[in-house]
């Protein structure tokens, strides 16, 4: 721990980024797959990323009441025909200053972090489609009344990161926590590997989350080669209600079932909430607890 403490001293050499979240907010989302918000769009990609890049459409904006952090929302498979009504609405609303309802998987991750972000401080309008942010609604499942739950699927032509590389990185990440009665400060280094393909072996039956989503603990297996090496154990897999993966996992999958998945990592706020409740104001540097939002799924071949 002393070594970690020393490492954190010189952020010039090893930059750590800090996010300060409200504990009440953490408690409200920790066991939900999704979040609902009123979202004002500042900037949106003119065109979605090419499928080879990930096929997402980035939308930068603000939701000061429900989220209170610099953020982006991302629509998966955004070049697809069924997604176009939502894409058109996004462009129609871009920069008009009006807020529209948005729903999607909440995602706290540190791919594009700022040095310091405090939740519910004033959030200025985003200057571009990818401002410094640690919070995302990714993927979007509904925008301004347009349902896009079907957009959660494998992205044809997108070579997501292999399980060994991605989970090797996730497993080695650390987080420094310091909580007060009302807030918790998290110091985390920049996190790579947005999308990962992997095989998962369920350790139990899925259970319902507060918003109708599903969660299940699973071992992550190497999806390359014949050996089923366990790359990570007891990872919470999160299924967004109404999506294809959610429907498939609902159909009797249980302990021992194996699936091939495309997933997006996010911080496991259930673990953070449980820990800071027990630790009080004590600071601690630990392994980063993460979970995977499953956005593509099929039974293991």
């Amino acid at each position: 721990m002393r070594a970690t403490f020393l490492m954190l001293l010189c952020a010039g050499a090893l930059p750590a980024e800090t996010v300060v979240l409200k504990r009440a907010w953490i408690d409200s989302v920790k066991d939900r797959a999704t979040i609902d918000a009123s979202f004002t769009i500042d900037h949106a990609h003119k065109h979605p990323n090419a499928p080879a890049a990930d096929g997402d459409m980035h939308v930068a904006g603000r939701a000061p009441n429900e989220i209170g952090l610099p953020m982006v929302a991302e629509l998966m498979n955004a070049a697809g025909a069924p997604e176009q009504p939502a894409v058109q609405l996004i462009h129609a609303h871009e920069g008009n200053g009006q807020a529209f309802p948005i729903t999607g998987a909440w995602r706290l991750w540190f791919e594009h972090p700022a040095a310091l972000q405090r939740q519910f401080d004033d959030v200025p309008p985003a200057a571009n489609t990818n401002p410094d942010h640690s919070f995302e609604i990714h993927p979007i499942t509904r925008y301004a009344g347009q349902d896009v739950t079907f957009s959660l699927d494998f992205v044809q032509g997108f070579p997501a990161h292999d399980a060994k590389t991605a989970f090797g990185s996730y497993e080695a990440m650390s987080i420094a926590l310091q909580a007060t009665d009302s807030a918790v400060s998290m110091d985390v280094k920049k996190a790579p590997y947005n999308y990962a393909v992997f095989r998962m072996k369920l350790l139990a039956d899925p259970v319902k989350l507060d918003d109708g989503g599903l969660a299940v603990l699973a071992d992550v297996l190497d999806n390359q080669g014949a050996d089923e090496n366990v790359l990570a154990s007891n990872i919470r897999m999160i299924f967004v209600p109404g999506t294809g993966p959610w429907k498939l996992i609902s159909q009797g999958a249980g302990d021992g079932s194996e699936f091939d998945a495309l997933g997006i990592p996010r911080v496991n706020l259930n673990a953070i909430a449980a820990f800071i409740k027990a630790a009080g104001g004590a600071s601690a540097t630990r392994k980063l607890p993460y979970e995977m939002i499953v956005v593509g799924l099929h039974s293991a071949q």
Partner: peptide, 26 residues
């Protein structure tokens, strides 16, 4: 002591919302 310890464990695999903190600093 210097290893990167996890924050929590899931003692009951069928309850992914019931994590239990481990090695709390006190």
């Amino acid at each position: 002591p210097e290893a990167l310890l996890p924050l929590v464990e899931y003692p009951d695999k069928s309850k992914p919302t019931a994590s239990r903190p481990i090695n709390v600093p006190e």
